[in-house]
Amino acid sequence: MKHLTVAGVLVLISTILVYLLLSNIGLLPVNASVEAQPIDRLFNLHYWAIAFLFSLIVVFIAYSLIVFRRRNGEDGDGQFFKGNDRLEITWTIIPLGFVIFLSYLGSVTLAETRKAEPQPLEIKVTAGQWFWRFEYPEYGIVSDKMMMPVNKQALLKLTSLDVIHSFWVPEFRVKQDLLPGENLVKELRVTPNLTGEYKVRCAELCGTSHAYMESPVIVVSQADFDAWVQEELNLLGADPSARGEKWARNNGCTSCHSIDGSVSVGPTWKGLYELEQQLADGSMVTVDGAYLHNAIVNPNAQVAAGFPANVMPQNFKDTISEQQITDMIEYIKTLK
């Protein structure tokens, strides 16, 4: 009995110490969304559970190892007892109750993260190897960074052009995979509540440059957001090649094509126009507007020598408007 009491007290002390440790070393990044609040509360409960259960077992074992170890010259066996069904039932029922309780809390928390506000800001998020594209259908804006007004729920409609990607901003806590396929558009609701610059970090292995598939997520006040919208809309009027540059960034082209002559996943665009281009089948073509158009809407038809086929997304003709393609071709023409 004495042993049990001592060990029990040690368990309590250890539980508190481990809990303090876990909750004070800054295990989680800043918490920047409404959805993150219940999640962090659940994490806190987990800290308690881990602290207690870890202490319970480790303290008892460590206590035995020290107190009941076989000392020098000692021989013989330990106390003979083979089991105790009542004890076994106890430590079946109590954890059972606890995990049911935990699951219940888990589902309540999940429901809280999915609460829908009546008028969210809709953002269409499209992922491709290896870029993010954000569309604001309300305003007709497309951007390569995600601007969000603070304290307003955003309803993300997520889809992918090629393989599975995953939308994750660590500060928002929530995560959702993006699947290719029109019938597999997924939704995620996020309500940022802290202004600042974050990053969306692709969390599902998606090939070569998965590590670098990060784009800025900027949470600003409603006023700043409106100003940004205005600015973007103004840009649309400018000359075609300036628009083309923007489309090229927004559509992720620049993640594979450089404009400074360096070789990347795909051929550089610098000096591409009017170049004598060798193709993978050995033939030569002169790059003109028609060739560029074809190269964008049907990349596998004429593959540039030295570059892989099947890497450049095949479905730009469905996902990018004809106007934008024309603008981008104008843009490529200017890159001498």
């Binding site: 074992i61 009941f68 013989g76 330990g78 004890l87 079946t92 954890p95 059972l96 995990v99 589902s107």
Partner: peptide, 30 residues
């Protein structure tokens, strides 16, 4: 949600092992 319940359920039989090991070590001659 159903898969969450079943997942956490595994903790119960696993726990039986841990508690039984602890009780085995208790008052042994180690």
């Amino acid at each position: 949600v159903p898969f969450m319940y079943s997942t956490l359920l595994v903790a119960v039989p696993t726990g039986i092992k841990f508690f039984s090991w602890t009780a085995t070590i208790w008052q042994g001659r180690i």
